[in-house]
């Protein structure tokens, strides 16, 4: 079961969540070809996944929000700052970890991260301290005096994360952060992202084509397809909803016990659908917990042999979004 969260700006404001990114009819063309088409959405989560197949416009969206590509139409606001008019202020709020290899040649990691900190406005003496701290934080403490150019792919990814964090951005853009990482390095990278998210000081936008990465880190997911928004889903709400959608398999020695059980829970407000071979699908109402089901079953001499949460995975959401049409709006 998938649900779309209300994402127009007024609805987000009504919910009390401060929007991290608000797009209003954002359109971008590159080389005369439209890449992003009239995107309208308000993203409010602590960690937002940006999903989509190759060429959907994920990286272009990040680049546009960074001011690398001028919008042809519409605009976007990051933490209330317009990317068309307040670009310098917008960039001061952002940390960006690019998808491709990106470093300054001939520099050790500590000098590289320090330079990036200074360019963002951190004074020189503070920048060196921050560079050491952040390199230890991402796990490159022991290798911080080595040239970034000599790093392995995984280490370069961590160095890119360090430079994105050094100036304490309010919003962190991570473009395919687990690209090319082996499983332990990937696990460590995702752990870092969750840690940053849970610290609560940085809002994270994670662009990836790996559903698992997004599922492990993100609360909300924006799916792009052909430059349009296919869906924008709150994964947390999705999980909450899933918890109430159950499948039961029942057994009873006593005649009519199963019917008595279903009548009882129906009387308590559950929506039911009987399946074959004493299988029952139900949506739990407010006030009726799973534990209550077992209590009622015991009272009615019914055994609950199996209880499954019907889970709509991110993969289901993604595939549904890919099948459905898009209008650029959520």
């Amino acid at each position: 079961m998938s649900s779309q969260v209300s994402t127009n700006p007024s609805a987000a404001a009504a919910n009390g969540a401060a929007p991290v990114i608000a797009m209003e009819g954002l359109s971008v063309s590159l080389g005369g070809r439209p890449i992003l088409k009239n995107l309208t959405a308000t993203l409010t989560g602590r960690c937002i996944g940006l999903l989509g197949p190759n060429g959907a416009g994920k990286t272009t969206l990040l680049h546009t929000l960074l001011g690398f590509h001028p919008p042809q139409g519409g605009t976007a606001r990051i933490c209330g700052r317009d990317i068309r008019h307040d670009l310098r202020e917008v960039r001061a709020l952002l940390g960006y970890m690019p998808e491709n290899d990106a470093f300054i040649a001939g520099m050790s990691a500590v000098r590289f991260v320090r330079l990036m900190g200074e360019l963002a406005g951190v004074p020189s003496d503070q920048a060196i301290e921050r560079a050491h701290e952040v390199l230890f934080y991402v796990g490159l403490g022991e290798a911080r005096y080595r040239e970034v150019g000599s790093y392995s792919l995984g280490m370069k990814q961590l160095a890119k994360l360090a430079q994105a964090l050094v100036h304490s951005p309010k919003v962190l853009f991570l473009d395919e952060p687990t690209n090319g990482l082996d499983p332990p390095a990937r696990t460590r990278m995702l752990k870092l992202i969750r840690d940053i998210r849970d610290a609560g000081e940085v809002r994270v936008i994670l662009s990836s084509h790996l559903l698992r990465d997004v599922e492990e880190c993100c609360e909300e997911v924006l799916v792009l397809k052909d430059g349009r928004i296919a869906t924008y889903t709150n994964l947390e709400e999705e999980r909450q909803a899933n918890r109430k959608f159950l499948e039961l398999e029942l057994r009873s020695e006593t005649e009519g016990a199963t019917a008595a059980f279903t009548e009882e829970i129906e009387a308590r407000g559950a929506e039911l659908a009987a399946g074959a071979r004493q299988r029952l699908k139900l949506v739990l109402p407010e006030g009726l917990a799973v534990r209550d089901l077992y209590t009622i079953a015991a009272a009615k001499s019914v055994q609950i042999r199996r209880l499954d949460y019907k889970k709509d995975s991110l993969e289901d959401i993604f595939l549904k979004a890919m099948e459905g049409g898009t209008d650029g709006r959520v």
């Binding site: 690398f68 202020e89 690019p98 990106a102 430079q163």
Partner: peptide, 12 residues
């Protein structure tokens, strides 16, 4: 080395 993206993603 794609360093320009790093420079220009800052208030610079």
């Amino acid at each position: 080395n794609n360093g320009l993206a790093l420079y220009l993603s800052r208030p610079f």
